[in-house]
Simulated scan of single mutants.
Amino acid sequence: MIELTVNGVKRQVDVAPEMPLLWVLRDELGITSPKYGCGVAQCGACTVHIDGKAVRSCQSSISEIAGKLVVTIEGLENRDQHPVLQAWIEHQVPQCGYCQTGQIMQAISLLERASKPTDELIDQVMSGNLCRCGTYPRIRAAIHAAAAKKMAEK
């Protein structure tokens, strides 16, 4: 049995140690917000937070995650009031929506590190999260809006 904490709940799973976290979340725990996109950590659709850092769950084996804190979009604190989620809605970022949970989790991680990111930093950090619909200008605008909202709340 491998123990980890997912969205604030201690969980135990009986799986092969090399199983990717993505499949543990989706198939074993029924958490389907992280999506399978490429399986090689190049698209970002499977992005979750592990101990506060944005990580591609498709390439993180469950044995590496044992004892760590995993947060998916469902586990965000004050999710309904989260500035990034509010900005995503206000700027109508999603088109098809497939990549959006990964985009949002990556954006939250970015804003934890940089309270007022430049366009260049946003492009650099978000470049590993692909959007086939091409909503990149709306993603960037939403990140700026969320950053401004977080600054105003301080």
Score class of each variant (00 low, 15 high):
M1E: 04
M1N: 13
E3I: 06
E3D: 11
E3W: 03
L4W: 09
T5E: 07
T5N: 03
V9F: 08
V9P: 04
K10Y: 01
K10R: 15
V13D: 02
P17E: 04
E18H: 15
E18M: 09
E18D: 13
V24C: 04
R26M: 03
R26Q: 13
D27Y: 00
D27A: 07
E28T: 13
E28G: 04
G30T: 01
I31Y: 01
S33T: 14
S33M: 03
P34R: 06
Y36K: 14
G37S: 10
G37P: 11
G37T: 12
G37Y: 10
C38P: 09
A41S: 15
G44A: 04
A45F: 04
A45C: 12
A45Q: 09
A45W: 10
C46P: 13
G52A: 05
A54D: 08
V55E: 05
S61Y: 14
I62R: 03
S63Y: 07
I65F: 01
G67A: 06
L69W: 06
V70S: 02
V70D: 00
V70M: 00
V71H: 10
V71E: 07
V71T: 15
V71L: 01
I73E: 04
I73Q: 02
I73D: 04
L76K: 03
E77S: 11
N78W: 00
D80W: 02
Q81H: 14
Q81F: 02
P83G: 01
V84I: 09
L85K: 08
Q86M: 09
I89R: 13
H91S: 09
H91D: 02
Q92M: 02
V93D: 00
Q95N: 05
Q95G: 07
Q95T: 09
Y98G: 14
Q100M: 11
Q103W: 10
Q103A: 11
Q103V: 10
M105D: 09
Q106H: 04
L110Y: 10
L110G: 11
E112T: 08
R113Q: 15
R113H: 14
R113A: 14
A114H: 15
K116F: 05
K116I: 13
E120I: 08
I122K: 00
D123E: 12
D123F: 05
D123C: 08
Q124N: 12
G128Q: 07
G128L: 08
N129W: 00
N129I: 06
L130G: 11
C131T: 07
C131K: 05
C133L: 02
G134T: 07
G134S: 01
T135A: 11
R138Y: 06
A141L: 03
A141P: 05
A142V: 03
I143R: 06
H144T: 06
H144C: 03
A145P: 12
A147E: 11
M151N: 15
M151D: 13
E153S: 14
